[in-house]
Design a binder for these strands. Structure first.
Length: 568
RNA sequence: CGGAGCGUGGCGCAGUUUGGUAGCGCACCUGCUUUGGGAGCAGGGGGUCGAAGGUUCAAAUCCUUUCGCUCCGACCA
């Protein structure tokens, strides 16, 4: 493509409202422009990159036996009510009404639509397994869109859905998708890690996330430095060190703790270790159920673990009215005499024999708390948030934290949706069976941003070859006829052999061309200058490594083709 | 949804405290010169100062309301 004819509005200055590098560079390199918060127009160059990535995704999905289709983005609410997700999905679901006041939503994902399709069309075990996918614009009414395309309200996603006869089939489909995802990210030259994940409101059993490690990751990845254990912080586990305390056998008794509302203040006031104080956190589920979570003072409650344990989707810290209702006081809440509240205790409090708890009265705590004696609870659970430096449950190694951008996720859904939608088939015995489902997503636009986060320098983007909008950037310098003629010839020759070339035929000074080339970041830059051309040479620079060298004129196209093959 | 900040030509910003006829850099147009890392000189075009209402002889500036955007948090893939 000739730059003089292509719309590539590069920016010299960094846009003020872009915070992260990928966002800044996507604007600066002329890949996209913002329409409104979290919603972007993809310009020719950016759309080029998107198509590149989509093509890789398509190839690997097809190779793995999936079939592409296209489902509607606009969906009737009835379908979502059938799966209970019209409410469960919460405010993230972009809802709207038509002129007849009927409820609709814009799809953030397509389990409902695809299951509805398949239940009507698939009747026999002979039709399974089936894996359908699409690449489509998705919608999520984000609370806070940010980081450019990393967290948008409208974004492009590849989503696939598998339907199998039984668990063994689902396991095979899942593995096939997992393997395909690895190939996709490998081909893009991305450094990633797969981690165990929480399945969130989508539901299901097994799930892995594909995380691109970067500086601005939104998710915290917990990984072991000596084995391959890695998990989302929301699910991560670690070895719990219980502290054996020789406690007295004294009865619970109230003590005054004026103004001591935090664990640290209580511990200091009473002169006890923080891990003798029991933290009591009051939550309210989406169904209005009240839950008091107990955890040792030196730990934090992991709300995702707690929500999963309770089997709820939404969990919020209780509001002031709840404290009034229960006749207790924020900062002095405790599990004894708390009233109509479900109590969930973390393993970390199970051995406490001389602990401190809130007394449910202002400026009062209870001491000599003995967990086993004073509470009638059958069990304790893991609702504890892992901290960096703790021990790995698999090998005893040290757990570390890293930031990651989630670019893909695979789920085993099981029968959650086939049950809700009665998606069944007749087996060989003529008996009706529920299909086993899986779903698999890749954030297309998000992956592009992640690739930039991982491949850039102070001058611009350094595209991995597979994602580059053009493989070769040709820079003729000056107005000499020889230079222009050579550039035109080389451009034609390379293009005709299928190489993607961007020719900077603009009437610009050398500095402008060099800077734009660095910014746009094509893997190979070929400079054609008056002097070097007269000397029978073309100059080559690799954007990724910075390596510079010259090639002699004559058969340049072949030579450049060889260089590309080397880079691949 | 809480907290903070910002809306002034296409972009980046100053001007707002102390009201007095809207400015700078980049970009754009014309001409001349220049031509290997974001050129120089000269000339030129372009702005309902986010919107609405109010105070005033006079409002970008003061007051009220409202909309939008960004960041932090909560939340989330």
């Amino acid at each position: 493509m000739k730059m003089s004819k292509m719309y590539i509005p590069t920016l010299k200055e960094t846009p003020a409202d872009a915070e992260v590098v990928s966002h800044q560079l996507m604007l600066r390199a002329g890949l996209m422009r913002k329409l409104t918060s979290g919603i972007y127009t993809y310009l020719p160059l950016g759309y080029n990159v998107i198509r590149k990535f989509e093509q890789i995704v398509r190839e690997e999905m097809n190779r793995a036996g999936a079939q592409e289709l296209l489902m509607p983005a606009l969906q009737p609410a009835d379908l979502w009510k059938e799966s209970k997700r019209f409410d469960d999905y919460g405010p993230e679901l972009m809802k709207l009404k038509d002129r007849h006041n009927r409820d609709f939503c814009l799809g953030p994902t397509h389990e409902e639509v695809v299951t509805d399709l398949v239940r009507d069309e698939i009747r026999s075990y002979k039709d399974l397994p089936l894996n359908l996918y699409q690449i489509q614009t998705k919608y999520r009414d984000e609370v806070r869109p940010r980081f450019g395309v990393l967290r948008g309200r409208e974004f492009i996603m590849k989503d696939a859905y598998s339907f199998d006869l039984d668990q063994a089939g689902l396991d095979r489909s899942y593995q096939a998708m997992y393997d395909a995802y690895c190939k996709i990210y490998d081909r893009c030259g991305l450094k990633y890690r797969t981690i165990l994940a929480d399945s969130g409101p989508i539901g299901g059993d097994d799930s892995h996330e594909f995380m691109v490690l970067a500086e601005v990751g939104e998710d915290t990845v917990v990984y072991c430095d000596s084995c391959d254990y890695a998990a989302n912080l929301e699910l991560a586990e670690s070895v719990l060190k219980l502290r054996e305390i020789d406690g007295s056998d004294e009865e619970l008794s109230a003590v005054a703790t004026p103004d001591a509302k935090t664990i640290a203040q209580v511990a200091e006031y009473l002169d006890v270790e923080i891990n003798q104080v029991v933290k009591s956190v009051l939550y309210e589920t989406q169904h209005g159920e009240l839950v008091l979570a107990l955890i040792r003072g030196d730990y934090e409650v992991n709300e995702v673990k707690l929500a999963n344990l309770l089997g709820v989707v939404n969990l919020e810290m209780a509001g002031d009215s709840v404290y009034e209702e229960l006749n207790t006081v924020k900062g002095f809440t405790g599990p004894v005499n708390i009233g109509e509240v479900k109590i969930v205790a973390d393993h970390s409090v199970s051995k406490i024999v001389d602990g401190v708890i809130g007394a449910n009265e202002i400026d009062q705590h209870l001491i000599h708390f003995n967990f086993a004696r004073d509470l009638d609870l059958e069990d304790t659970f893991d609702i504890r948030e892992v901290k960096a430096g703790e021990e790995c449950v698999h090998c005893g190694g040290e757990l570390k934290f890293a930031e990651g951008i989630e670019v893909g996720q695979v789920f085993k859904l099981g029968t959650k949706y086939s049950e809700a939608f009665e998606a069944t088939y007749l087996d060989e015995a003529g008996k009706s069976q529920l299909m086993k489902m899986g779903c698999y997503g890749i954030g297309i636009t998000r992956t592009i941003a992640a690739a930039i986060e991982q491949n850039h320098d102070e001058y611009g983007i350094k595209w991995p070859l597979a994602l580059a909008p053009y493989q070769v950037h040709l820079l003729p310098l000056g107005k000499s006829e020889d230079v222009i003629k050579k550039a035109e010839e080389l451009y034609q020759e390379l293009t005709s052999t299928g190489i993607e070339v961007l020719l900077d035929d603009r009437n610009e000074r050398a500095g402008v061309k060099f800077n734009d080339a660095d910014l746009i970041g094509c893997p190979i830059r070929v400079t054609i200058g008056g002097r070097s051309l007269a000397a029978g040479e073309l100059e080559v620079k690799y954007r990724q490594s910075g390596k510079e060298f010259t090639i002699s004129t004559g058969n340049e196209a072949t030579k450049i083709k060889d260089l590309l093959a080397e880079l691949a």
